[in-house]
Simulated scan of single mutants.
Amino acid sequence: MRKMGKALLAAGMVVAFSSLAVPNASAYERCSTGRYCIYSGFNGSGSICQVIPEHHDVTAQCLWTGTNNAKSVKNMTTSQVYFYGGTNFTQFRGSTASGGQGNLQGSYKIRSVGL
């Protein structure tokens, strides 16, 4: 019985260590092809809002964007996407190249996105 317990403990440690060695999928991978994704957390974490560019009021689709600052973005479209702090493409904040992703300052909201 004692040998069996040690064997189980050793097997459990191998499983534990091997699961630590396997990296988690990137949080950014939640963004679907053809979408521009806005995240409430850094590094693609937190709540996600997936929009099709040329969206004049992101808050209408994702309520959290009206109260929480955007912390990171990912562009899964084939075009450069421009993002704005106001609805109807006002208050330009920046842009993301096709396939680009990254953290923002985290000090503003994204209310519209355009091409």
Rank of each mutant, 00 (worst) to 15 (best):
A21P: 08
G66D: 03
V22E: 06
S72G: 12
E29Q: 13
G66Q: 08
V22F: 09
P53Y: 01
S95E: 05
S19P: 11
I110Q: 07
G44I: 14
K109D: 09
T78Q: 09
Q80N: 12
R35W: 01
G106N: 09
N24K: 08
T78R: 06
C37H: 07
G85L: 07
G66R: 05
K3C: 03
K6Y: 15
S18N: 11
K6S: 14
S26G: 10
H55E: 13
L9I: 14
P53M: 04
Y84S: 09
S107Y: 06
R2A: 09
T87N: 11
F42Q: 05
Y39Q: 12
G85P: 08
T87V: 13
I52M: 01
T90R: 10
T67S: 12
S79Q: 15
G114P: 01
T77L: 05
G66E: 04
A97M: 05
S45T: 15
Y108H: 13
A16T: 07
S72E: 12
P23K: 10
G106P: 04
R35F: 04
Y82L: 06
T59K: 15
T59I: 09
L115W: 10
V73D: 08
R2E: 14
R93L: 14
V81L: 04
Q50A: 10
N75R: 03
G94R: 02
K3D: 11
V73P: 06
Q101D: 10
G114W: 02
Q101N: 14
K3R: 10
G34S: 06
E54T: 05
Q50K: 05
W64Y: 07
A97T: 12
F89W: 15
G34A: 03
G114F: 00
N43I: 02
G102W: 01
V113W: 04
K6Q: 14
Q50E: 14
Q91C: 01
A7H: 05
R93T: 03
T87K: 07
V73M: 08
A70F: 06
T96Y: 00
P23L: 08
Q91S: 13
A60W: 01
T90H: 05
L8D: 11
T77D: 05
K71V: 06
L8W: 06
N88C: 00
Y39T: 12
L63Q: 09
V22N: 07
T33F: 01
G99T: 03
V14P: 07
Y84V: 09
R35V: 01
N75Q: 04
G41Q: 11
A11S: 08
N88K: 03
A27T: 05
K71P: 00
Q50M: 12
S47G: 00
K71M: 13
G94I: 01
F17V: 15
S45V: 01
F92W: 11
C49H: 02
G114R: 04
R30W: 04
K6G: 08
L8C: 15
M76F: 00
K3N: 13
G66N: 09
D57G: 02
E29F: 02
G102A: 10
I48T: 13
I38Q: 02
W64R: 03
M4V: 14
F92M: 02
S95N: 09
I52R: 04
C49N: 08
V113E: 03
T65N: 10
